[in-house]
Simulated scan of single mutants.
Amino acid sequence: FIAIALSGLLMAGAHLRDVMRSAAFRAPDVDDSREPMPYRWAVVGYLLCLTFLVGWSLAAGMTLGAPLVFFLLFSLFSLSLTRIRVQAGLGAVHGPMTVQDLMMGVGGTQFLGAQNLTVMGHYFFMTGEMRGVMSVMPSHLEGYRLAETVRINPRKLVLGVMLGTTIGLALAHFAALRTIYDYGGNILNNWRVKDMPARPWKDLRLWLTNPRDVDWVGLQFVAAGGLITVLLTFLRLKFVWWPFHPVGYAAAYTGRTIHWFWFTLLLGCALKYMALKHGGPKTYRAFLPFFLGLILGDFFMGGLWGVFGLASSQPGYLFFP
């Protein structure tokens, strides 16, 4: 995942240099009028948010280096998920490990210390479920890409996103608390209400009672995965005919994602291959509305049975994800 993010940053090096020049010096030759916000606002906003999060963590008891590394790694994980979302179309991706797991493997229990481990446990809600906070950036970027396709002013869309996020958070908190207290969290969703909130504290107890050293074996596998990703990226850029994408390699071992999606992905790839092989690009484009209709139908049925469940107080269709 880290190699996916870093390779993307390297390939966008020229553009990122223009972004930094525009943010720092208001470079007149850099045009950001078609972006969701000026480059300076984006860079300053990221730095302010990073400063706030690091300051919050320091006030909670962490040492200076730990929260800085944590949130930089969190940014890289979010960037890699965004690239997987854009290039592979996977709506939900579970990474092979969390930021906490990676830092534990690199530093070990004694190096990080009990205070850092305790505060990082509170951040499990950000990293433990990649359909949550980490999916915000991929979803927003996808929305901006759709807005660009239909020629909606992205800067007006930013206001809509901010308003929708504010209203959505308020309604989600109210709906979640009301539903959990009315029906019982363990009945509705055992993972989100029982197992996930307890997971970081079970891990913390294990780390403190059974201290761990640096996981050299695990780091070797991390390094090997990074090198393979870099190699696939190089081959993908060097040879047009190269069939294997680094994003596919990264997504191949992403926990429940491939376990749930493997047949759908296999079926989609097979049908796409058959359409291109026997009918050519024209036939492939002719079939696109049909497959988009299948996706729309799944969303429609998920919403319909959700409304039915609310009206009848009966369990309805579990809409993935």
Rank of each mutant, 00 (worst) to 15 (best):
40 R>N: 05
7 S>T: 07
59 A>K: 12
84 I>C: 10
91 G>N: 00
99 V>L: 02
122 H>F: 12
65 G>E: 07
112 L>R: 01
5 A>S: 11
103 M>A: 00
83 R>V: 14
36 P>M: 03
71 F>A: 08
14 A>K: 09
76 L>W: 07
59 A>P: 12
73 L>G: 07
26 R>M: 11
97 M>S: 06
59 A>H: 12
36 P>N: 03
110 Q>Y: 15
41 W>V: 14
7 S>A: 15
41 W>Y: 12
74 F>T: 11
24 A>V: 15
42 A>H: 03
52 F>Q: 07
125 F>G: 07
3 A>F: 07
21 R>D: 04
12 A>H: 14
87 Q>R: 13
66 A>S: 12
32 D>T: 01
25 F>W: 13
8 G>S: 08
52 F>T: 09
41 W>A: 13
3 A>Q: 02
88 A>Q: 15
118 T>Y: 14
113 G>T: 05
95 G>E: 08
34 R>W: 12
18 D>C: 15
103 M>V: 00
62 M>H: 04
94 H>R: 13
77 F>R: 00
2 I>Y: 03
80 S>V: 00
52 F>I: 09
64 L>G: 02
91 G>E: 02
87 Q>H: 09
15 H>L: 05
81 L>Y: 00
83 R>Y: 10
109 T>L: 04
48 L>H: 09
115 Q>P: 09
83 R>F: 11
114 A>N: 08
111 F>M: 13
103 M>D: 02
101 D>E: 11
103 M>P: 00
39 Y>D: 15
98 T>V: 05
67 P>F: 05
69 V>M: 14
110 Q>N: 08
44 V>T: 10
21 R>A: 07
66 A>W: 08
101 D>G: 11
12 A>F: 13
81 L>N: 00
13 G>E: 12
11 M>H: 11
3 A>D: 05
65 G>A: 06
74 F>L: 09
42 A>V: 02
63 T>K: 01
5 A>V: 01
60 A>Q: 01
80 S>W: 00
83 R>L: 07
104 M>I: 10
27 A>D: 12
5 A>L: 03
94 H>F: 12
118 T>R: 14
94 H>W: 15
116 N>G: 01
2 I>E: 04
41 W>M: 15
17 R>N: 12
79 L>A: 10
40 R>W: 06
62 M>P: 05
111 F>Q: 09
73 L>M: 10
80 S>I: 00
121 G>H: 10
57 S>I: 03
21 R>L: 13
64 L>M: 05
99 V>M: 02
44 V>K: 03
58 L>D: 01
112 L>C: 03
22 S>G: 15
62 M>K: 06
20 M>E: 04
97 M>C: 06
44 V>A: 11
45 G>W: 04
43 V>F: 12
18 D>Y: 07
96 P>Y: 04
79 L>M: 14
23 A>P: 08
89 G>R: 04
52 F>M: 09
77 F>M: 01
34 R>V: 12
16 L>M: 09
31 D>Y: 03
122 H>M: 13
40 R>K: 07
93 V>F: 11
21 R>F: 03
4 I>M: 00
79 L>K: 05
